[in-house]
Design a protein around this nucleic acid. Structure first.
Lengths: 172, 172
DNA sequence: CCGAATTGTTTTAAGCCTAAAATGTTTTCC
DNA sequence: GGAAAACATTTTAGGCTTAAAACAATTCGG
């Protein structure tokens, strides 16, 4: 018998583990269900934003980030928060500056940095949309009890942590 | 006092409900967390598919649908299952036929309908990718206990039903 | 101080995605 | 039978998105 083994997960069932790969069908189903829920809700919100305010979801999301930051944010900040690529933000901001919702200026202390803020118009429009948006979300989740909501929050926090850990394992 | 009221939700607190709109911050936070989880995992899967197999996530998803349907599917079927627009599927299929992964033919009984299937190549490549994909998902959810997985499945099923109901309320 | 990394943003090329209009086909129902 | 409605798909126009390369400015280490 070997004195030690790094393979802590398998204990003494090495051969079996190799010959019959684990079944991860449950996790797969969970992932598909998670994706379905998000797609469903996202599509609904997208449609309502368009119908009601003639605005796209990405524009709304970007404005939501800025509404929480009265002193503005850099493009990198926005990109990280929204979890989208840098180039994506560049284009989105371009269009929102064009339409008068955003103000963009180069930082005075670091000329690489662009700081963006909501304009008065942008903030007013966002607040108007956000109020209604909140009722849509409430309605979409209406059949969940407060306890369900708490429990989902807890489990999704755990999920997020697990996924972040897994992602970090791949690119440390 | 009015003899009757349609406003069953409010019972006898009409004025209060109007003056102090409900607080739905918890549902909003839940939605953002749900979105974060999905975006995180989706991004990870997207990156791994690209790096490992040089394939995009939408292509993989479409092939996954077809793998479950040996007799093929119509474009509408695919579009409904994937919850994306018709036009989107048209383009996706075009590229996958071009690359030899899909076979497309007009239905003989209804000339409006296009039936698509995986080719031998398409099926082989998909199976190879799917096997690895499953391990990624397992890893991403690794910190959830079997009980967590079951509980999340249950709560997401409830969420899905609630959202579908809400969507149906808007466009009956 | 100065070259080498690093950081922040934009550009590029390709593909994804949607909503709405257009096209062709089948079904419905007088 | 034939007009009208319904259906499946494609086209169109515009916007979103990414990965990777290019560019610009700052910071770091020697």
């Amino acid at each position: 018998m070997p004195a030690e083994s790094d393979c802590t997960e398998m204990l003494d069932s090495e051969t079996k583990a190799v010959e019959t790969p684990e079944d991860h069908a449950e996790e797969l189903r969970l992932w598909l269900r998670l994706l379905t829920c998000t797609t469903l809700i996202e599509g609904e919100v997208r449609g309502r934003l368009r119908q009601r305010f003639d605005v796209t979801l990405p524009r709304f999301d970007l404005m939501a980030q800025l509404d929480k930051a009265p002193d503005g944010m850099t493009l990198s900040d926005v990109s990280k928060r929204m979890m989208v690529s840098n180039g994506n933000v560049t284009g989105l901001v371009e269009r929102l500056v064009e339409s008068g919702h955003l103000d963009r200026r180069t930082s005075e202390t670091d000329r690489r940095v662009q700081v963006i803020r909501l304009t008065k118009l942008g903030r007013a429009e966002f607040r108007r949309m956000a109020a209604e948006h909140e009722t849509w979300i409430a309605d979409l989740f209406a059949d969940l009890s407060p306890k369900d909501v708490r429990e989902l929050m807890r489990l999704l926090a755990k999920t997020k942590a697990s996924a972040q850990k897994s992602a970090a394992r791949r690119r440390p």
